[in-house]
Structures are given as C-alpha cells and as structure tokens.
Amino acid sequence: MRLIVFLVLLCVAPIAALSQTRTPSHCIALAADIDGAQFLRRASYDVDVAPETVRLHYIAHASFLLRTNGGLNMVTDFTGFTGSAPMIPDVVMMNHAHDTHWTAFPDPAIPHVLEGWGEFGQGIDHRLDLGEVLVRNVSTDIRSQWSGVEENGNSIFIFEVAGLCIGHLGHLHHEPNAEQYAAIGRLDVVMAAVDGGTTVDLPTMIRILGRLKSSIVIPMHWFAQSTLDTFIAGMRDDFAVVEVGGPALDVSLDRLPSRPTVMVLRPAWLSVAADD
C-alpha cells in the first residue's frame, strides 16, 4: 500500500511543480481559463519586477514591452527590433496597417507570434494562456492600402495579468461598436494611438477613452510633441496628467490612481544599462 501511495505522489509532484496561478482580473467573464496552458523559459532580458506587478516599457512608436514578475516578456506591435538588450520575447503581437507595426521575419526562436489579422476580412481569434498571463484579442477594421476598408484587419490585444486588464488598441481606425466594447471589457490600463491622422481622429479617440474609463491611459503613436500636447489638452477636463519622465512604468492593482490619469512615457529602446 505504501508503495502505491509513493508512486502516486511521484506522478502528481511534477504536475504541481508546473502549475501557475493568475490573479483573476475583472476584465470580462468570457475570458475564462483555457486548457492546455504552456509554460516557457525565461528570456535573456532579466529585469526584476515585483510580485503582482507588470512593467510597461515604451520601446518606440506603438511597441511596448510588458514584463511580468514570473519573467515573461511580451512585445506589442513587434517590428523585429527592440534595442541593444539581449532578448528573445516569449510572445510578440503584430498589426499590419504599416510596416512600423510588424515584421514578416520574426525570429523563429520566439515561442509565440500572434498576428493581428487573418484572411482578408475574416479577422483572427487568439486565446493564449501562459498561466501567469492570458493574452486575447478583439478584431477591428483598418484602412486598406488602397484607402478602402479591411474588415477585422486590426487587433486590440488584451493582457489579463496580476489582477489587471491591460489593453493595446493597435492601429485603430474607428470607434468600436457595442459588441466590440463588450468583448474588450473593463481595461485598467490602455495604450492608445493619439496621432489623430493615420489612426482614428482625436475627438473620436478621446470619446473612446472616456467610455473605456481606464485608470491609466498611455498615449502612443504620436509623431511630434505638438500632437501629444493637443491630445493632452483634450483629456485634461476628465483626466489627470502625469509626465512619468522616462520610458517605463510599474503597474499593480493596488496602486492604480484614484482618478483616471494620462501617464506620458517617453519611448526608448531596451538596453541593459537603462533598466538595471
């Protein structure tokens, strides 16, 4: 009998060692846990992140690094280059509105490459559960290269991690409809394109952000300080504004601002010296 118990424990122990838990977010009930979670090795980029915290580093244009306490590195709107720091991301997300948002040649060593588009007009669905984080998407339209519309050609990527719901709106060209808003859910943090020209116009983006009611809004995809200033001026009535003073911000559920806040990050390539 003792031998049988011992053998059972030997079988169960490796499973327990592999299991990871994710603090539930309040993002959306439909984003449930998924069977078949995969667990990955730490990437070579090794920056400490506190428990129940996510580090957001604005790399360039619309590209951000999201790094977890468990060492997962995820890069949005990945172009193939993140800086001089040695890193093979665990997950990259891409949108194909312009070549500043994707690469046709991602490193084959990247375990998960999530394209934000599918067959023309069909969109794509991602539900990637890595235990510590759930990555999912909501498809929206983009303009085609001939100034038409590619339905479902853009993805809003959403990360449920450390009890937070973090969204990246991608190359959004229109206000989401009711079904898309419902699929997005309640975002604690949102990264939003604020150029007002190649993506959605500024009045529409400001209306979108007002409806999302996120605690933190991080502007991206601005081409000049004047464009950023115009966006901030339009947000000041309802949002506080904080100049972070660098490219990185650590976010946790218990430290979200009490008033909705625009937090301005200044993009910088990843480098070991900058983040040590």
Rank of each mutant, 00 (worst) to 15 (best):
H101Q: 15
H101F: 14
W102Q: 10
W102L: 10
W102G: 06
T103G: 09
T103M: 03
T103L: 02
T103Y: 06
T103D: 05
A104T: 09
A104D: 14
A104I: 05
A104L: 13
A104N: 11
F105Y: 13
F105M: 12
F105E: 14
P106R: 10
P106E: 07
P106L: 09
P106H: 08
P106F: 06
D107V: 10
D107T: 09
D107L: 11
D107F: 12
D107M: 11
P108M: 07
P108T: 11
A109K: 15
A109D: 15
I110R: 10
I110Q: 11
I110C: 13
I110E: 05
P111K: 07
P111Q: 09
P111R: 10
H112L: 08
V113N: 08
V113M: 02
V113F: 05
L114G: 06
L114W: 06
E115D: 13
E115W: 06
E115R: 14
E115N: 15
E115L: 05
G116H: 10
G116A: 08
G116N: 06
G116T: 05
G116D: 04
G116W: 05
G116R: 05
W117N: 09
G118S: 11
G118W: 08
G118M: 07
G118L: 03
G118K: 07
G118C: 04
E119T: 12
E119A: 15
F120Y: 12
F120A: 13
F120S: 11
F120I: 04
G121F: 08
G121S: 07
Q122V: 00
G123R: 09
G123E: 01
G123H: 03
G123A: 04
I124M: 05
I124H: 07
I124S: 04
I124N: 04
I124T: 14
I124C: 02
I124R: 12
I124E: 04
I124P: 01
D125N: 09
D125H: 13
D125K: 10
D125V: 15
D125Q: 14
D125S: 14
D125I: 06
H126I: 01
H126D: 01
H126G: 02
H126Q: 02
R127D: 12
R127M: 10
R127Q: 15
R127N: 09
R127E: 10
R127S: 13
L128Y: 01
D129V: 00
D129F: 05
D129L: 03
D129I: 03
D129P: 00
L130C: 11
L130G: 02
L130S: 07
G131L: 02
G131R: 01
G131Y: 08
G131N: 06
G131M: 02
G131H: 04
E132Q: 10
E132R: 03
V133C: 12
V133M: 06
V133R: 00
V133Q: 03
L134R: 08
L134K: 01
L134G: 07
V135D: 02
V135M: 01
V135G: 03
V135Y: 01
V135F: 00
R136D: 06
R136N: 11
R136F: 03
N137L: 04
N137G: 08
N137K: 02
V138P: 01
V138K: 07
V138M: 02
S139G: 00
S139E: 02
S139T: 13
